[in-house]
Design a protein around this nucleic acid. Structure first.
Length: 500
DNA sequence: GTACGACTTAAGGCACCGGC
DNA sequence: GCCGGTGCCTTAAGTCGTAC
């Protein structure tokens, strides 16, 4: 009898998984190892029994397999299904009831990316409709679904998002197709992994995969215009042939693709190639708090050298007391590296309620046609360093740029949720082609974060979820006062001192 | 044009946990 | 006990459509 291990954040999630997967199987029984570790024997089909052991709370165990540890470095999925005998992760699952508001909808995307990057199948189960605290219903974001489709194509591994609930029953598991599809798909993946899948079941798996992709595409088509002003690949998303092709690519890794347009999947064009459509004309530019670098980037957009995608912008003001405390800690981080810390030259703008805006640029995502324009803006705003971004990024200097801004002031906050997930989603979607060919530079700008936040007391790059993701997806990070951490150069710090 | 309110965004709060 | 990292969730304030 083969034994599978269920690694979860809590026993509760393990029990939830077993409760649902058992429904698709024959007889089952449960006993407890050492009186507390649940071990199920499940009749997968009349010819195959399997044992499933539930390990709750990842960090409580000493024998955690190294493959699971590697996956956890890029974010913690709720459930990981693993077989020790073959040392293979069969599947990772993320399950949430969170209402999709703002960047929260993107906060789990680094897990989606991490799994696909490690060629591990991933299923994300989330509500299509959620009840917001204001009493109104919100519909899910398109970004996790877009990311899943792109990753499935790039890494030839299932990365799917499944939706539950409906508009009249927000957050209700029993509505919609998501929950049923999750466990049906899981059941097939287990059988496929164990090599006990017959031909008719493989056909059913193919049909199910095609259905899931069709639903993911349909969801994006019905929802994109609520979230972005422009969507680049609509025709493909409407074609059933694409769902069939992608299902085939995911399930039959030996197959040679015949569709040479895969590389152009979801390609975000240059302004100079497509011009500025009318819907971009009224886009909101400008800064709340003055920032020379970002004002120059806004100018690029005004001159048709790039565009922004956000629809509506947000600001999250903070109290004066918190702000001054965080500035002190940021300064201390800079001091550790003997760097200056530069506060904004003018006072932060005050809100009606007496808080202060920390927002610089109102948009946090820019797609800029040429690195040269970013380089010019950088050189004008931070002349003291004498740095050329064109030279720093010499291997990718010909590529356009995705610029991500995080105005977070609280030290090291940007390494955690929701920022890491948001960056991971955008960096993959904007900066890599359908065959995972790099097509844009990914540049992060953190106006308030000291470069010192990136290093420990021994001046080594800190190891956390943020730096793990940046190492894979970011080219450079521009920190406070223009100091640059280069992830093309293993986290080396650049500035006028040219130190680390 | 402006007032309103439904809706979106972007930031930290906070609970939990592990190391010291 | 405190402190820092992580991850789920809350919320200040801006946006934008609509009605007058």
């Amino acid at each position: 009898m083969r034994t599978l291990e269920l690694w979860t954040d809590s026993f509760h999630e393990g029990e939830w998984f077993m409760h649902n997967i058992k429904k698709l199987c024959g007889a089952s029984s449960c006993h407890y190892i050492h009186n507390f570790i649940p071990s199920y024997t499940v009749e997968l089909d009349p010819a195959n029994n399997i044992e499933m052991i539930v390990y709750g709370s990842y960090k409580s165990w000493e024998n955690i397999p190294s493959k699971i540890n590697t996956l956890l470095e890029m974010g913690k999925p709720d459930i990981i299904l693993y077989e020790r005998e073959s040392d293979e992760i069969i599947l990772a699952i993320e399950e949430t009831a969170a209402v999709p508001t703002g960047n929260q909808a993107l906060q789990r995307c680094e897990r989606i990316f991490g799994s696909a990057y490690l060629k591990i199948p991933f299923i994300y189960l989330l509500p299509e409709y959620g009840l917001h605290k204001d009493g109104n219903v919100r519909r899910a974001s398109i970004w996790p679904t877009l990311l899943g489709l792109k990753l499935s194509l790039q890494f030839q591994v299932p990365s799917i998002s499944l939706l539950y609930s409906d508009i009249d029953n927000p957050e209700d598991y029993s509505k919609g197709t998501g929950l049923d599809m999750l466990f049906q798909y899981t059941y097939y993946l287990i059988k496929q992994h164990l090599g006990v899948m017959d031909k008719s079941e493989y056909q059913k798996l193919t049909a199910l995969t095609t259905d899931i992709i069709t639903e993911m595409c349909a969801f994006v088509i019905s929802q994109f215009d609520k979230i972005i002003r422009f969507f680049p690949d609509l025709l493909r998303f409407k074609k059933k042939a694409f769902a069939i092709l992608l299902a085939h690519r995911i399930l039959d890794k030996e197959s040679k693709d015949v569709d040479i347009t895969i590389d152009k999947f979801l390609l975000w064009p240059l302004t100079k190639d497509r011009g500025i459509p009318a819907e971009f004309k009224d886009v909101s530019l400008g800064a709340i708090n003055n920032n020379d670098f970002l004002l120059a980037i806004d100018d690029c957009v005004r001159k048709n050298k790039g565009y922004v995608l956000s629809q509506g912008v947000g600001t999250r003001p903070q109290s004066k007391k918190d702000i001054s405390g965080w500035f002190k800690i940021q300064s201390a981080f800079s001091k550790q590296l003997n760097l200056p810390y530069k506060k904004p030259s003018a006072d932060l703008k005050k809100t009606d309620k007496g808080n202060y805006h920390i927002t610089t640029s109102k948009n946090i995502t820019y797609l800029i046609d040429a690195l040269e324009d970013i380089d010019n803006a950088y050189a004008a705003a931070f002349p003291q360093h004498g740095l050329s971004l064109n030279k720093l990024l010499i291997n990718t200097a010909a590529l356009p740029v995705f610029l991500y801004i995080c105005n977070s002031l609280k030290p090291r906050r940007m390494f955690g949720d929701p920022f890491t997930g948001q960056f991971a989603a955008f960096a993959n979607i904007f900066c890599y082609s359908g065959t995972y060919r790099k097509i844009r530079n990914a540049i992060i700008y953190l106006p308030y974060q000291s470069a010192g936040c990136f290093y420990d007391k021994d001046k080594k790059l800190t190891r956390n979820k943020g730096t793990a993701i940046y190492s894979l997806l970011a080219d450079i990070v521009i920190c406070n006062d223009g100091y640059v951490v280069s992830f093309q150069d293993k986290g080396k710090l650049y500035g006028k001192e040219n130190t680390l």
